[in-house]
Design a protein around this nucleic acid. Structure first.
Length: 122
DNA sequence: ATTCTGACCGCAA
DNA sequence: GTTGCGGCCAGAA
């Protein structure tokens, strides 16, 4: 293949691998923000890259549904198939979703506190 | 190189 | 609570 094997591709693959690993590390029944995942993967300010990568893994074995926006809202447009699917999967593992959003501690102050923050259902 | 896009983020009003 | 806007950065055209 004529696929480039240079350092740029290598770096991109590493980013992808680290981000996927961070997503897989989210415990069952918990959620995390795009930015938090990026930060934890070692790439702060790469929230949009996380979103992009999740899209590539659509359907693959990856708990993509546990990734939400920083404010706890589902990133898909309300009513879209993606929105409904994510909502369904979250509820299936006991996460409380109200009006397309999950209660999350505020990101920004203490990143670590926000990373695996969950809805507090119980 | 330049331009456009996006499952985003933070802050201000 | 909401909306708007600038900032952010990798990928694709």
């Amino acid at each position: 293949m004529s696929r480039r094997r240079g350092p740029v591709d290598a770096a991109a693959e590493l980013r992808r691998a680290r981000i996927v690993a961070a997503v897989r590390a989210i415990p069952h029944g918990h959620v995390a923000g795009y930015g938090a995942i990026a930060h934890r993967a070692g790439y702060p300010r790469h929230a949009r890259l996380v979103a992009r990568i999740l899209g590539e893994y659509e359907g693959a074995e990856l708990p993509w549904h546990r990734v939400l926006r920083a404010d706890g809202r589902i990133a898909f447009a309300e009513g879209s198939s993606g929105f409904r699917e994510q909502c369904r999967r979250l509820r299936a593992e006991g996460v409380r979703v109200e009006a397309g959003r999950v209660r999350m501690p505020r990101a920004g102050d203490d990143v670590d506190a926000a990373v695996w923050g969950w809805d507090g259902a119980g």
